[in-house]
Design a binder for these strands. Structure first.
Lengths: 191, 191, 191, 191
DNA sequence: TATGAATGAGGATTCATTCAT
DNA sequence: AATGAATGAATCCTCATTCAT
């Protein structure tokens, strides 16, 4: 995921695996070193600390999500089309980077410096949604809602639903989830 | 929150504070003991381990949410009315037990035994939503959607939006959030 | 074993069980209280400390062994007859009070005050053997050996052999062990 | 004793000292680290746990005893000569490794996994004695006795006598003890 | 006499980080 | 660039003992 080169990429990949499996605190540098087939000292050659490694990793990940979506939001699309695209892309991202998403949902809530940082990153993604919502409202395509609430709501709805499935027993049927999420985002549940 | 009596309630309250501030792993029994003004051993007199204390605490919390909502879902209400009630209650709960909700969203994702347990508990709450969705569909009031996806989606939408505000700078305006969430859940964003 | 009355005897018996099962250090006052069906405080009502309880218990036990043997060493018996009696009695005691004997062999070696005390107690039993040896030598019935070495040697030979069997899989055949020990003590192994 | 190299040998030696002085339970890793002039973590770098360190140490010790004796039991020796050699060697070993022998006698009795393990190790030494006894019986040099009883008996006789002296006030006169033990093992006490 | 909640010192173990090679 | 032995602060948990009832 989000490759670099050589030893560094090994460490990077191993870090994602281990952090998502155990969470930030329970993951150990030994774990990561072992998974990367690298001596522990080597990690410290490339990253100043566990914290830094983690931060770097999450930064990259959110960037991939945000930039991936952003690059597809062509200006010629209508707000409704854009919204549909966002729903589809986020579902796809969660399926593809499940482990990373676990990290994200896990390490974001709390008052630590690191967690504030993470929320800012996520915010930068939610901002994309907000903008589309705003455009939709202005274009008269969408109901008037607080864009920030809508942004976090849509992100949260998809995120929790996706993880709920991904961490449960059932297979992750992206298309079905997409249909349901699209319907709910677009029209809600009440007829 | 969710009182018990005497020393035990002191520990209980302190545990919520500390766990929500630091998360399960970073929270120490020393912290909790100090916060509760109790000797460390006293905690172990009442709870077998840090894990057990935590589990117990989360169990209680989810119960308060679930039972609180459940007790208000009078049979004479229509599915639409029930759904509205759920939205309102969950928003209210998040505002009232912010710290607990941070714990909940934080410690639920992952493969550890404890986390599976937590997801089961949350699931027991989401199940309430699913049932209402199902009733609504059967009554012809709701669009046909997969009830499970709708359940986790609605829970997630409200949860993330609420936390997003609660952990940000802005005041938690329950009524405004309720109006937005209700609109989104009921009608979506697209006109 | 070595009864007292009422609550105290319950504690006493429980202490033997637990101490022999776990050793002095690993045995806890909680264990003992639970086994005796008594509140922990009650133990402290009867015994000043864990150490004291233990000391008392070992004292009693060694007394039972020593006094039991001593009372049977009638003056009219020949040294050889006395020696035979000692062998038989010690084997019998080990079979009857296996748990206590485990304690004895376990907690006797080392430099702590308590252990010195225990060795003194055991010494008081070995002294019986030494006296018989001395009598036998003086009567011309026994080879001239250092009585102290003979005393500890005979005690040790029987003790270790008995425990070896008692803690192994095989049944404790007292009569067979007696025959072997008697032969070895009396005539050694070389023809 | 039983050297290794570098830090590890420091730990090893310190462990023997401390374990024999205080026993397994009372000995602390802090003690051992301090005695070895090593950080506590260093011990854990080399040994997984206190238990493992201890097990390793006892294993080595018993091996030294067993292999030392075994290597001297030349096939051309008669059973009687072999038995004499065993008596001498065991007495010598106890004198040389007093502290280790205290550990051995102390930590062997009980039902814990570790203790079973230890008894197996000791058994592997006693087995040497048993074989010699068996050979002696078959060669017509020894009285017919149960070899297992004789093995544990001889081991125990020497062990307890040796420790009795080593932990008492008197000097450890190996030659005198050897003469007495040899006489008792060979001919018993009765003329 | 008897109880059991409360205590806090003590001990095993973990792990991020350093540093000499 | 890479290594891995060494460190020691930090943390969970245990348990003998006390004491108010």
């Amino acid at each position: 995921m989000f490759m670099r080169k050589s030893k560094m990429s090994l460490i990077f990949q191993a870090a994602i695996d281990v952090f998502s499996e155990k969470g930030f605190d329970k993951a150990t540098m030994d774990d990561i070193a072992a998974r990367a087939n690298v001596a522990k000292g080597t990690i410290y050659y490339h990253f100043k600390s566990k914290e830094e490694l983690f931060l770097f990793l999450v930064e990259e990940g959110v960037e991939v999500l945000r930039d991936g979506v952003e690059s597809k939001l062509m200006p010629e699309l209508s707000p409704t089309e854009k919204l549909e695209l966002i729903v589809r892309e986020q579902i796809n991202f969660f399926g593809q980077y499940r482990d990373f998403c676990v990290i994200l949902l896990r390490e974001t809530w709390g008052g630590e410096e690191r967690q504030l940082e993470f929320r800012k990153m996520i915010r930068s993604y939610m901002y994309l949604i907000e903008q589309v919502i705003q455009q939709g409202i202005e274009a008269g395509e969408f109901h008037p809602v607080n864009a920030e609430n809508a942004g976090s709501g849509i992100f949260g709805m998809i995120a929790i639903s996706a993880l709920h499935i991904l961490l449960g027993q059932n297979a992750y049927d992206e298309e079905a989830l997409f249909q349901d999420m699209k319907r709910m985002v677009f029209s809600g549940v009440v007829k």
